[in-house]
Design a protein around this nucleic acid. Structure first.
Lengths: 151, 151
DNA sequence: CCTATTTAGGACTGAAATGGTCCGGTATCC
DNA sequence: GGATACCGGACCATTTCAGTCCTAAATAGG
């Protein structure tokens, strides 16, 4: 699997909808209608996205949300990090000292590299990219891993 | 997050331990001792790995397990697929017709591409690679995504 | 042939995460 | 001042996950 949570998936959909009206402010109800995601869920997502600084909010009548930055400058990795924390395939790749086997585990260093590579790849796809109708993808090779010692 | 399950994590450790003795057959108890993973868990892992054809098993006295192929020919993606199913970041990347929004969702095609890229990256790291002490990684650029004209 | 060893397969349980909902409070516009 | 809409949090039902255990089957060795 290696699956994103459903919330994150929906979060991307909401972000994409928000990208459609970059300047307009849209409220949670509108976004729910536009995306087909249940309203309370949309609310929850927007709150988290706001706290993480990915969207700006305006309270009160005629309030709503809009992207904090141009869609080109918001990556999938940003959205994932906002909704489910930073990418880390294994426990040990994220935090130190939780495993007990760390000192003798040969795998750990490798996981970190792989981890960074995937995060890098995800960081190279923007919300704007995801919003394009077609399937052309301007994405980078996963900088961390690929390149030999030289890098 | 985007985290592997703990079982998969342990599974990699077991595979690495198995790679240490490519020709010797090792039983579940030995592997539990060598890896520090609880015996019942090791058993469970080995059963699954066996069913997926990643290891071969021998029953009876002096039985045990060994890698079905050279460690160089078993990728991380193989192990992940064996233990938690094929890599698929989103529901829609794996199965058709479960979402209801599929026909109108612009994101779907993009997710598939990203998905393939990550799977590709994971497929380029072997158990043998993971077993090396150092941190040099012979990994490929994530063939699916990158490729664009420039790169 | 008999016994000890070791995997095969599945059932089961407790704990944790996840998705989803709702409520009282606060800020803003008209 | 009233209506609108976000803010923060608590809350619950469901599912998934990790981990354990038991019985059956197969093999090696005496």
């Amino acid at each position: 699997m290696l699956r994103l949570s459903k919330l994150t998936d929906y979060g991307m959909v909401v972000m994409a909808a928000l990208a459609d009206a970059e300047d307009d402010t849209r409220n949670a109800a509108d976004l729910a209608t536009a995306t087909g995601v249940a309203l309370p869920t949309v609310r929850k997502l927007l709150k988290r996205l706001n706290r993480s600084g990915l969207v700006n909010s305006a309270r009160g009548a005629r309030g709503g949300y809009r992207l904090a930055r141009p869609a080109e400058d918001i990556s999938i990795a940003d959205v994932i990090a906002a909704l489910e924390g930073p990418v880390s395939l294994t426990e040990c790749a994220a935090h130190d000292g939780l495993c007990g086997m760390e000192s003798v585990c040969r795998l750990r260093g490798h996981w970190r590299v792989i981890n960074d590579a995937i995060r890098g790849a995800l960081a190279d796809v923007s919300v704007a990219d995801m919003n394009r109708p077609a399937l052309s993808m301007p994405l980078q090779p996963a900088p961390g891993i690929a390149s030999s010692p030289g890098s």
